[in-house]
Amino acid sequence: MNTILITVISLCAIGVVAAIILYFVAQKFKVEEDPRIDTVESLLPGANCGGCGYPGCRGFSETVVKSENMDGLLCPVGGAATMSAIATALGRNAAASTPKIAVVRCNGSCENRPHTNKYDGAASCAVVHSLYAGETGCSYGCLGCGDCVSVCKFDAIAMSTETGLPVVADENCVACGACVKACPKGIIELRNKGVRNMRIFVSCINKDKGGIARKACSAACIGCGKCFKECSFEAIKIENNLAYIDFTKCKMCRKCVAVCPTGAIHELNFPPRKQVVPTVETKEE
């Protein structure tokens, strides 16, 4: 009995002494921190994805609190909603930003783009890219090792077993841009999410001359310029044998999709063609 008592008392005594010491040490070495940083951090998603370009959500919060206005600061995960919440908390005005989404600009499926050799090495796009052009005749297209998939923290991108290309899951993608950075070929781009996720884009970044591009991949952009001529909004430009649709100018008329001879221009999430209603166009900003 005595032993138990002594043990309990001595342990308690040690605890009390330690607590007192800790209290004074904490007082002595207290670091004054802006309490607003905590407030901002609590509003952030807490994924620590680094998509904003700062070291984690804490780093972002510090920057937000320190900065005078919130220009150029965006949590890509939380999006406009989070930013306006932060702005309200700090008593500032949030800049409006359009929601974005990652878009894979390659359509070189096994069918469209036959393999010309076989890669046997570390399964990483970055390693392949530093070694050579890739398993197909196209030196611009997707390498298929899934570096974008492994960096995605939101389970929003996956390799399709059918085509061997990454597919973005619209509902999961928060446009943090991690896959854009990870892709050594620069295939993935952040584009406007569009009304009801409707998007039009050139699904190819091959800058080779038409003939070479076509030989490597049947779905390649050959830079023929038909889409450029068709577009009445000056949204399409052709550089280095490659068409690019500027999503800020595109009015989603889908005329370019119809004229593309190789099917390189893709439309996503549109209603079937015949039911096209002009209201869709007017809605888009």
Partner: peptide, 12 residues
């Protein structure tokens, strides 16, 4: 293991 594959990448 493909040691050099990754080291070369990291070196770059």
């Amino acid at each position: 293991l493909p040691l050099l594959d990754y080291i070369r990448l990291g070196k770059g």
